[in-house]
Design a protein around this nucleic acid. Structure first.
Lengths: 230, 230
DNA sequence: TCGCTTCTTGAACCGCGGTTCAAATTGGGT
DNA sequence: ACCCAATTTGAACCGCGGTTCAAGAAGCGA
Protein backbone atom coordinates (compact mmCIF):
# COMPACT_ATOMS: atom_id res chain seq x y z
CA UNK A 1 0.00 0.00 0.00
CA UNK A 2 2.70 2.44 0.96
CA UNK A 3 5.46 2.77 -1.61
CA UNK A 4 8.88 2.66 0.05
CA UNK A 5 11.85 4.46 -1.36
CA UNK A 6 15.19 3.68 0.17
CA UNK A 7 15.90 7.38 0.11
CA UNK A 8 13.91 8.75 2.96
CA UNK A 9 13.86 6.58 6.02
CA UNK A 10 12.04 9.28 7.89
CA UNK A 11 9.02 9.28 5.63
CA UNK A 12 8.74 5.58 5.46
CA UNK A 13 8.54 5.34 9.19
CA UNK A 14 5.12 6.03 10.62
CA UNK A 15 5.09 8.18 13.73
CA UNK A 16 4.69 5.19 16.00
CA UNK A 17 7.78 3.58 14.55
CA UNK A 18 9.66 6.83 14.69
CA UNK A 19 8.81 7.12 18.35
CA UNK A 20 10.41 3.78 18.94
CA UNK A 21 13.54 4.84 17.10
CA UNK A 22 13.71 7.85 19.35
CA UNK A 23 13.07 5.66 22.34
CA UNK A 24 16.18 3.67 21.56
CA UNK A 25 18.43 6.66 21.23
CA UNK A 26 16.88 8.32 24.25
CA UNK A 27 17.07 5.40 26.61
CA UNK A 28 20.62 4.71 25.58
CA UNK A 29 21.53 8.32 26.23
CA UNK A 30 19.65 8.45 29.52
CA UNK A 31 21.45 5.38 30.62
CA UNK A 32 24.89 6.55 29.63
CA UNK A 33 24.80 10.11 30.85
CA UNK A 34 21.93 9.91 33.32
CA UNK A 35 18.45 11.32 32.89
CA UNK A 36 19.05 14.79 34.25
CA UNK A 37 22.41 15.19 32.59
CA UNK A 38 20.89 14.37 29.22
CA UNK A 39 19.32 17.37 27.50
CA UNK A 40 16.63 17.23 24.90
CA UNK A 41 19.21 18.55 22.48
CA UNK A 42 21.39 15.54 23.26
CA UNK A 43 18.55 13.14 22.59
CA UNK A 44 17.71 14.91 19.37
CA UNK A 45 21.32 14.81 18.24
CA UNK A 46 21.49 11.10 19.03
CA UNK A 47 18.51 10.64 16.72
CA UNK A 48 20.07 12.79 14.04
CA UNK A 49 17.42 15.45 14.35
CA UNK A 50 16.86 18.80 15.98
CA UNK A 51 15.20 19.66 19.26
CA UNK A 52 12.13 21.16 17.73
CA UNK A 53 11.48 18.04 15.73
CA UNK A 54 11.73 15.94 18.84
CA UNK A 55 8.81 17.89 20.23
CA UNK A 56 6.79 16.86 17.22
CA UNK A 57 6.86 13.32 18.56
CA UNK A 58 6.82 13.90 22.29
CA UNK A 59 4.97 16.48 24.33
CA UNK A 60 7.89 17.01 26.66
CA UNK A 61 10.77 15.36 28.42
CA UNK A 62 8.59 13.67 30.99
CA UNK A 63 6.56 12.06 28.25
CA UNK A 64 9.68 10.74 26.64
CA UNK A 65 10.81 9.28 29.92
CA UNK A 66 7.39 7.78 30.54
CA UNK A 67 7.49 6.15 27.13
CA UNK A 68 10.84 4.55 27.96
CA UNK A 69 9.74 3.37 31.35
CA UNK A 70 6.47 1.95 30.12
CA UNK A 71 8.25 0.03 27.41
CA UNK A 72 10.57 -1.49 29.96
CA UNK A 73 7.86 -2.54 32.38
CA UNK A 74 5.79 -3.96 29.56
CA UNK A 75 8.66 -6.18 28.57
CA UNK A 76 9.05 -7.37 32.12
CA UNK A 77 5.37 -8.19 32.36
CA UNK A 78 5.55 -10.04 29.05
CA UNK A 79 8.53 -11.95 30.36
CA UNK A 80 6.68 -12.97 33.46
CA UNK A 81 3.73 -14.12 31.42
CA UNK A 82 5.95 -16.24 29.23
CA UNK A 83 7.72 -17.84 32.16
CA UNK A 84 4.51 -18.43 34.08
CA UNK A 85 3.08 -20.28 31.09
CA UNK A 86 5.80 -22.90 31.42
CA UNK A 87 4.36 -24.13 34.71
CA UNK A 88 7.64 -24.58 36.53
CA UNK A 89 8.18 -25.00 40.23
CA UNK A 90 9.04 -21.85 42.15
CA UNK A 91 12.85 -22.10 42.18
CA UNK A 92 13.07 -22.70 38.45
CA UNK A 93 10.41 -20.13 37.77
CA UNK A 94 12.35 -17.60 39.78
CA UNK A 95 15.56 -18.55 38.08
CA UNK A 96 14.17 -17.77 34.65
CA UNK A 97 12.70 -14.50 35.83
CA UNK A 98 16.02 -13.32 37.19
CA UNK A 99 17.84 -14.27 34.02
CA UNK A 100 15.17 -12.74 31.84
CA UNK A 101 14.98 -9.57 33.85
CA UNK A 102 18.73 -9.14 33.62
CA UNK A 103 18.57 -9.62 29.88
CA UNK A 104 15.69 -7.19 29.50
CA UNK A 105 17.61 -4.47 31.23
CA UNK A 106 20.98 -4.98 29.63
CA UNK A 107 20.70 -6.78 26.33
CA UNK A 108 19.91 -5.33 22.95
CA UNK A 109 18.60 -1.80 22.90
CA UNK A 110 16.67 -1.66 26.08
CA UNK A 111 14.27 0.82 27.56
CA UNK A 112 16.60 -0.08 30.36
CA UNK A 113 16.19 2.38 33.15
CA UNK A 114 13.05 0.73 34.37
CA UNK A 115 12.09 1.60 37.91
CA UNK A 116 14.83 4.20 38.05
CA UNK A 117 14.01 7.86 37.83
CA UNK A 118 10.40 7.34 38.79
CA UNK A 119 10.36 10.74 40.45
CA UNK A 120 11.08 12.39 37.11
CA UNK A 121 7.64 11.50 35.81
CA UNK A 122 4.44 13.50 35.77
CA UNK A 123 1.95 12.39 38.43
CA UNK A 124 -0.34 10.70 35.91
CA UNK A 125 2.43 8.80 34.16
CA UNK A 126 3.93 7.84 37.45
CA UNK A 127 0.68 6.45 38.69
CA UNK A 128 0.20 4.32 35.61
CA UNK A 129 3.77 3.08 35.46
CA UNK A 130 4.17 2.42 39.14
CA UNK A 131 0.95 0.44 39.00
CA UNK A 132 2.44 -1.78 36.33
CA UNK A 133 5.70 -2.09 38.19
CA UNK A 134 3.79 -3.11 41.28
CA UNK A 135 1.96 -5.71 39.30
CA UNK A 136 5.28 -7.21 38.30
CA UNK A 137 6.55 -7.09 41.85
CA UNK A 138 3.43 -8.77 43.13
CA UNK A 139 3.86 -11.50 40.55
CA UNK A 140 7.37 -12.11 41.83
CA UNK A 141 6.17 -12.23 45.41
CA UNK A 142 3.45 -14.65 44.43
CA UNK A 143 6.01 -17.02 42.96
CA UNK A 144 8.02 -16.93 46.15
CA UNK A 145 4.98 -17.49 48.31
CA UNK A 146 3.93 -20.40 46.14
CA UNK A 147 7.34 -21.99 46.51
CA UNK A 148 7.05 -21.28 50.16
CA UNK A 149 3.81 -23.15 50.42
CA UNK A 150 5.05 -26.05 48.30
CA UNK A 151 8.11 -26.43 50.48
CA UNK A 152 10.50 -25.63 47.67
CA UNK A 153 11.60 -22.40 49.26
CA UNK A 154 12.40 -21.89 52.90
CA UNK A 155 10.29 -19.60 55.01
CA UNK A 156 11.25 -16.00 54.46
CA UNK A 157 9.42 -12.76 54.02
CA UNK A 158 8.42 -12.80 50.36
CA UNK A 159 8.41 -9.03 50.11
CA UNK A 160 11.94 -8.62 51.39
CA UNK A 161 13.20 -11.51 49.29
CA UNK A 162 11.64 -9.91 46.23
CA UNK A 163 13.28 -6.61 46.93
CA UNK A 164 16.64 -8.26 47.33
CA UNK A 165 16.25 -9.83 43.93
CA UNK A 166 15.00 -6.67 42.25
CA UNK A 167 17.75 -4.64 43.86
CA UNK A 168 20.52 -6.87 42.65
CA UNK A 169 19.12 -7.06 39.14
CA UNK A 170 18.10 -3.45 38.73
CA UNK A 171 21.45 -2.31 40.01
CA UNK A 172 23.14 -3.96 37.04
CA UNK A 173 22.02 -0.95 35.03
CA UNK A 174 24.56 1.07 37.00
CA UNK A 175 27.57 -1.00 36.11
CA UNK A 176 26.92 -3.39 33.24
CA UNK A 177 28.88 -2.61 30.11
CA UNK A 178 28.24 -4.31 26.81
CA UNK A 179 31.95 -4.45 26.14
CA UNK A 180 32.72 -5.89 29.55
CA UNK A 181 34.15 -9.24 30.48
CA UNK A 182 30.89 -11.06 30.89
CA UNK A 183 27.71 -11.21 28.89
CA UNK A 184 24.40 -10.15 30.35
CA UNK A 185 23.33 -13.77 30.16
CA UNK A 186 26.30 -15.00 32.18
CA UNK A 187 25.66 -12.37 34.82
CA UNK A 188 21.97 -13.11 34.90
CA UNK A 189 22.65 -16.79 35.41
CA UNK A 190 25.08 -16.28 38.23
CA UNK A 191 22.71 -13.82 39.87
CA UNK A 192 19.85 -16.26 39.53
CA UNK A 193 21.97 -19.00 41.02
CA UNK A 194 22.96 -16.95 44.04
CA UNK A 195 19.62 -15.32 44.67
CA UNK A 196 17.51 -18.44 44.23
CA UNK A 197 19.86 -20.77 46.07
CA UNK A 198 19.68 -18.34 48.93
CA UNK A 199 15.98 -18.99 49.22
CA UNK A 200 15.99 -22.73 48.65
CA UNK A 201 14.47 -24.97 51.29
CA UNK A 202 17.01 -27.29 52.93
CA UNK A 203 17.27 -30.47 50.92
CA UNK A 204 15.78 -28.93 47.80
CA UNK A 205 18.23 -28.33 44.98
CA UNK A 206 17.94 -26.07 41.99
CA UNK A 207 17.88 -27.54 38.53
CA UNK A 208 18.58 -24.94 35.95
CA UNK A 209 15.87 -25.03 33.32
CA UNK A 210 17.46 -25.49 29.92
CA UNK A 211 15.02 -23.37 27.97
CA UNK A 212 16.20 -20.31 26.14
CA UNK A 213 14.30 -17.13 26.64
CA UNK A 214 13.04 -16.02 23.22
CA UNK A 215 14.78 -12.97 21.84
CA UNK A 216 11.46 -11.28 21.08
CA UNK A 217 10.94 -10.85 24.77
CA UNK A 218 14.26 -9.13 25.22
CA UNK A 219 14.89 -7.15 22.08
CA UNK A 220 12.60 -4.70 20.46
CA UNK A 221 10.50 -6.47 17.84
CA UNK A 222 10.11 -3.43 15.64
CA UNK A 223 13.84 -3.49 15.11
CA UNK A 224 13.60 -6.63 13.05
CA UNK A 225 10.41 -5.50 11.36
CA UNK A 226 12.34 -2.58 10.00
CA UNK A 227 14.54 -4.88 7.97
CA UNK A 228 11.61 -6.44 6.16
CA UNK A 229 10.92 -4.97 2.73
CA UNK A 230 7.31 -4.40 1.71
CA UNK B 1 38.16 27.44 76.66
CA UNK B 2 35.06 28.31 74.70
CA UNK B 3 32.21 29.51 76.86
CA UNK B 4 28.93 27.92 75.79
CA UNK B 5 25.63 29.65 76.15
CA UNK B 6 22.52 27.63 75.52
CA UNK B 7 21.19 30.58 73.57
CA UNK B 8 23.02 30.45 70.31
CA UNK B 9 23.47 27.00 68.90
CA UNK B 10 24.92 28.44 65.77
CA UNK B 11 27.75 30.22 67.49
CA UNK B 12 28.61 27.33 69.72
CA UNK B 13 29.05 25.07 66.74
CA UNK B 14 32.39 25.35 65.03
CA UNK B 15 32.28 25.32 61.25
CA UNK B 16 33.23 21.66 61.08
CA UNK B 17 30.35 20.73 63.33
CA UNK B 18 28.01 22.99 61.45
CA UNK B 19 28.97 21.28 58.25
CA UNK B 20 27.90 17.99 59.74
CA UNK B 21 24.58 19.44 60.79
CA UNK B 22 24.08 20.59 57.25
CA UNK B 23 25.16 17.19 56.00
CA UNK B 24 22.34 15.56 57.91
CA UNK B 25 19.66 17.85 56.60
CA UNK B 26 21.08 17.71 53.10
CA UNK B 27 21.44 13.97 52.82
CA UNK B 28 17.98 13.48 54.24
CA UNK B 29 16.57 15.91 51.70
CA UNK B 30 18.56 14.42 48.83
CA UNK B 31 17.28 11.03 49.75
CA UNK B 32 13.67 12.05 50.05
CA UNK B 33 13.29 14.25 47.04
CA UNK B 34 16.25 13.11 44.97
CA UNK B 35 19.47 15.02 44.38
CA UNK B 36 18.44 16.97 41.31
CA UNK B 37 14.99 17.74 42.61
CA UNK B 38 16.46 19.21 45.77
CA UNK B 39 17.47 22.82 45.42
CA UNK B 40 20.05 24.60 47.51
CA UNK B 41 17.19 26.65 48.88
CA UNK B 42 15.52 23.45 50.06
CA UNK B 43 18.65 22.30 51.82
CA UNK B 44 19.08 25.69 53.42
CA UNK B 45 15.49 25.73 54.59
CA UNK B 46 15.89 22.25 56.03
CA UNK B 47 18.80 23.62 58.05
CA UNK B 48 16.83 26.66 59.12
CA UNK B 49 19.09 29.02 57.22
CA UNK B 50 19.19 30.92 53.96
CA UNK B 51 20.86 29.97 50.69
CA UNK B 52 23.61 32.51 50.96
CA UNK B 53 24.62 31.22 54.32
CA UNK B 54 24.83 27.70 52.97
CA UNK B 55 27.50 28.93 50.59
CA UNK B 56 29.51 30.10 53.54
CA UNK B 57 30.01 26.46 54.45
CA UNK B 58 30.13 24.82 51.06
CA UNK B 59 31.66 26.03 47.83
CA UNK B 60 28.80 24.70 45.75
CA UNK B 61 26.26 21.94 45.40
CA UNK B 62 28.79 19.44 44.14
CA UNK B 63 30.91 20.00 47.20
CA UNK B 64 27.95 19.39 49.42
CA UNK B 65 27.20 16.15 47.63
CA UNK B 66 30.81 15.10 47.79
CA UNK B 67 30.81 15.69 51.52
CA UNK B 68 27.76 13.44 51.91
CA UNK B 69 29.19 10.72 49.74
CA UNK B 70 32.56 10.73 51.38
CA UNK B 71 30.96 10.45 54.78
CA UNK B 72 28.98 7.44 53.66
CA UNK B 73 31.93 5.61 52.14
CA UNK B 74 34.05 6.35 55.16
CA UNK B 75 31.50 4.68 57.36
CA UNK B 76 31.43 1.65 55.13
CA UNK B 77 35.20 1.38 55.25
CA UNK B 78 35.14 1.73 59.01
CA UNK B 79 32.53 -0.99 59.15
CA UNK B 80 34.65 -3.31 57.09
CA UNK B 81 37.63 -2.66 59.30
CA UNK B 82 35.66 -3.47 62.39
CA UNK B 83 34.27 -6.69 60.96
CA UNK B 84 37.60 -7.77 59.57
CA UNK B 85 39.15 -7.39 63.02
CA UNK B 86 36.87 -10.08 64.37
CA UNK B 87 38.60 -12.72 62.28
CA UNK B 88 35.52 -14.61 61.19
CA UNK B 89 35.21 -17.13 58.39
CA UNK B 90 33.99 -15.78 55.07
CA UNK B 91 30.27 -16.56 55.37
CA UNK B 92 29.96 -14.97 58.79
CA UNK B 93 32.20 -12.11 57.77
CA UNK B 94 30.00 -11.47 54.78
CA UNK B 95 26.88 -11.76 56.87
CA UNK B 96 27.99 -8.97 59.17
CA UNK B 97 29.02 -6.78 56.29
CA UNK B 98 25.63 -7.07 54.65
CA UNK B 99 23.82 -6.31 57.88
CA UNK B 100 26.16 -3.45 58.69
CA UNK B 101 25.97 -1.99 55.22
CA UNK B 102 22.19 -2.05 55.34
CA UNK B 103 22.24 -0.30 58.69
CA UNK B 104 24.73 2.29 57.49
CA UNK B 105 22.51 3.25 54.61
CA UNK B 106 19.18 3.24 56.37
CA UNK B 107 19.58 3.70 60.08
CA UNK B 108 20.04 6.89 62.03
CA UNK B 109 20.89 9.96 60.05
CA UNK B 110 22.86 8.58 57.21
CA UNK B 111 24.94 10.10 54.50
CA UNK B 112 22.85 7.48 52.81
CA UNK B 113 23.02 7.93 49.10
CA UNK B 114 26.43 6.36 48.87
CA UNK B 115 27.39 5.18 45.42
CA UNK B 116 24.32 6.83 43.98
CA UNK B 117 24.60 10.05 42.06
CA UNK B 118 28.27 9.61 41.38
CA UNK B 119 27.87 11.44 38.11
CA UNK B 120 26.78 14.56 39.94
CA UNK B 121 30.26 15.09 41.36
CA UNK B 122 33.12 17.18 40.11
CA UNK B 123 35.88 15.15 38.44
CA UNK B 124 38.27 15.55 41.37
CA UNK B 125 35.73 14.59 44.01
CA UNK B 126 34.52 11.73 41.91
CA UNK B 127 38.00 10.38 41.53
CA UNK B 128 38.64 10.45 45.25
CA UNK B 129 35.29 9.00 46.24
CA UNK B 130 35.15 6.32 43.59
CA UNK B 131 38.61 5.27 44.68
CA UNK B 132 37.34 4.75 48.20
CA UNK B 133 34.25 2.99 47.00
CA UNK B 134 36.43 0.66 44.94
CA UNK B 135 38.52 -0.04 47.97
CA UNK B 136 35.41 -1.18 49.78
CA UNK B 137 34.30 -3.28 46.85
CA UNK B 138 37.69 -4.91 46.62
CA UNK B 139 37.54 -5.73 50.30
CA UNK B 140 34.22 -7.47 49.76
CA UNK B 141 35.58 -9.40 46.83
CA UNK B 142 38.57 -10.43 48.87
CA UNK B 143 36.32 -11.89 51.54
CA UNK B 144 34.46 -13.92 48.96
CA UNK B 145 37.65 -15.17 47.37
CA UNK B 146 39.00 -16.13 50.74
CA UNK B 147 35.88 -18.14 51.51
CA UNK B 148 36.24 -19.58 48.08
CA UNK B 149 39.72 -20.77 48.79
CA UNK B 150 38.81 -22.11 52.22
CA UNK B 151 35.96 -24.09 50.77
CA UNK B 152 33.35 -22.20 52.76
CA UNK B 153 31.86 -20.63 49.67
CA UNK B 154 31.14 -22.41 46.44
CA UNK B 155 32.99 -21.44 43.29
CA UNK B 156 31.51 -18.34 41.76
CA UNK B 157 32.83 -15.20 40.19
CA UNK B 158 33.65 -13.01 43.17
CA UNK B 159 33.11 -9.82 41.24
CA UNK B 160 29.62 -10.73 40.13
CA UNK B 161 28.69 -12.06 43.54
CA UNK B 162 29.87 -8.80 45.09
CA UNK B 163 27.81 -6.75 42.71
CA UNK B 164 24.73 -8.81 43.48
CA UNK B 165 25.20 -8.09 47.15
CA UNK B 166 25.89 -4.42 46.67
CA UNK B 167 22.96 -4.07 44.32
CA UNK B 168 20.49 -5.60 46.72
CA UNK B 169 21.74 -3.56 49.65
CA UNK B 170 22.20 -0.24 47.89
CA UNK B 171 18.79 -0.54 46.34
CA UNK B 172 17.22 -0.43 49.80
CA UNK B 173 17.81 3.31 49.69
CA UNK B 174 15.10 3.46 47.06
CA UNK B 175 12.37 1.85 49.08
CA UNK B 176 13.24 1.64 52.76
CA UNK B 177 11.04 3.75 54.99
CA UNK B 178 11.77 4.35 58.65
CA UNK B 179 8.09 4.07 59.45
CA UNK B 180 7.70 0.84 57.48
CA UNK B 181 6.80 -2.60 58.69
CA UNK B 182 10.32 -3.85 59.23
CA UNK B 183 13.39 -2.35 60.81
CA UNK B 184 16.57 -1.85 58.86
CA UNK B 185 18.14 -4.52 61.01
CA UNK B 186 15.48 -7.09 60.18
CA UNK B 187 15.85 -6.37 56.50
CA UNK B 188 19.61 -6.48 56.69
CA UNK B 189 19.50 -9.83 58.38
CA UNK B 190 17.16 -11.39 55.87
CA UNK B 191 19.21 -9.98 53.03
CA UNK B 192 22.37 -11.36 54.57
CA UNK B 193 20.74 -14.72 54.99
CA UNK B 194 19.60 -14.92 51.38
CA UNK B 195 22.70 -13.46 49.78
CA UNK B 196 25.21 -15.44 51.82
CA UNK B 197 23.31 -18.71 51.75
CA UNK B 198 23.26 -18.34 48.01
CA UNK B 199 27.03 -18.50 47.97
CA UNK B 200 27.53 -21.21 50.56
CA UNK B 201 29.48 -24.28 49.58
CA UNK B 202 27.39 -27.47 49.67
CA UNK B 203 27.51 -28.94 53.13
CA UNK B 204 28.61 -25.72 54.76
CA UNK B 205 25.97 -23.99 56.84
CA UNK B 206 25.80 -20.41 58.01
CA UNK B 207 25.90 -19.63 61.69
CA UNK B 208 24.72 -16.17 62.37
CA UNK B 209 27.30 -14.34 64.46
CA UNK B 210 25.64 -13.01 67.59
CA UNK B 211 27.65 -9.84 67.88
CA UNK B 212 25.97 -6.48 67.70
CA UNK B 213 27.41 -3.92 65.40
CA UNK B 214 28.34 -0.90 67.54
CA UNK B 215 26.11 2.10 67.02
CA UNK B 216 29.11 4.38 66.55
CA UNK B 217 29.74 2.71 63.24
CA UNK B 218 26.24 3.37 62.03
CA UNK B 219 25.20 6.67 63.51
CA UNK B 220 27.04 9.91 63.37
CA UNK B 221 29.23 10.29 66.45
CA UNK B 222 29.07 14.06 66.49
CA UNK B 223 25.36 13.78 67.12
CA UNK B 224 25.94 12.46 70.60
CA UNK B 225 28.81 14.84 71.22
CA UNK B 226 26.39 17.69 70.76
CA UNK B 227 24.46 16.63 73.85
CA UNK B 228 27.51 16.91 76.08
CA UNK B 229 27.73 20.14 78.01
CA UNK B 230 31.10 21.83 78.37
C1' DT C 1 2.22 21.99 -11.62
C1' DC C 2 -0.55 23.03 -7.69
C1' DG C 3 -1.96 22.26 -3.06
C1' DC C 4 -2.38 19.87 1.01
C1' DT C 5 -0.60 17.31 4.84
C1' DT C 6 3.26 15.71 7.21
C1' DC C 7 7.42 16.58 8.90
C1' DT C 8 11.58 19.48 9.94
C1' DT C 9 14.16 23.47 11.10
C1' DG C 10 16.49 27.12 13.80
C1' DA C 11 16.02 30.72 16.49
C1' DA C 12 14.07 32.77 20.33
C1' DC C 13 11.79 32.60 24.78
C1' DC C 14 11.66 32.08 29.67
C1' DG C 15 11.79 30.33 34.19
C1' DC C 16 14.16 27.58 37.49
C1' DG C 17 17.87 27.10 40.36
C1' DG C 18 22.87 27.51 41.30
C1' DT C 19 25.70 31.19 42.55
C1' DT C 20 27.48 35.88 44.03
C1' DC C 21 27.90 39.83 46.95
C1' DA C 22 27.70 43.93 49.60
C1' DA C 23 25.56 45.06 53.51
C1' DA C 24 23.72 43.83 58.19
C1' DT C 25 24.10 41.26 62.55
C1' DT C 26 26.16 38.80 66.18
C1' DG C 27 28.93 38.07 70.21
C1' DG C 28 33.38 37.53 72.50
C1' DG C 29 37.61 40.00 73.76
C1' DT C 30 39.63 44.31 75.54
C1' DA D 1 31.29 50.83 74.94
C1' DC D 2 33.84 49.53 71.05
C1' DC D 3 36.16 46.57 67.68
C1' DC D 4 36.82 42.89 64.86
C1' DA D 5 36.17 38.48 62.95
C1' DA D 6 32.86 35.22 62.15
C1' DT D 7 28.43 34.56 60.51
C1' DT D 8 24.00 35.61 58.29
C1' DT D 9 20.93 37.86 55.19
C1' DG D 10 18.22 38.94 50.98
C1' DA D 11 18.29 40.42 46.73
C1' DA D 12 20.10 40.16 42.33
C1' DC D 13 22.56 37.82 38.67
C1' DC D 14 22.96 34.65 34.93
C1' DG D 15 23.33 30.63 32.23
C1' DC D 16 21.54 26.22 31.18
C1' DG D 17 18.05 23.62 29.31
C1' DG D 18 13.11 22.71 28.49
C1' DT D 19 9.83 24.55 25.51
C1' DT D 20 7.47 27.27 21.75
C1' DC D 21 6.66 28.81 17.19
C1' DA D 22 6.43 30.68 12.69
C1' DA D 23 8.36 29.61 8.65
C1' DG D 24 10.40 26.27 5.40
C1' DA D 25 11.06 21.48 2.99
C1' DA D 26 9.42 17.19 1.39
C1' DG D 27 6.47 13.87 -0.38
C1' DC D 28 2.06 12.61 -2.65
C1' DG D 29 -2.31 12.77 -4.93
C1' DA D 30 -4.91 15.28 -8.47
Amino acid sequence: MVARTTASLAREAQPAVRRRQILRAASRAFRERGFHATGMRDVAAACGMTVGNLYYYFENKQDLLAFCQEDAVQRLLALHQWVAARGLAAPEHLYLLVVGHTLCLNEGTPGSLAHLEVEGLSPQSRERIVAQRDRYERALRAVIRAGNKDGDLRAADAKVATLAILGAVNWTVKWFRTDGRKTALAIGEQFAEQLVQGLLAPGRSLQRPDVTIPAELINDETETKMEVRG
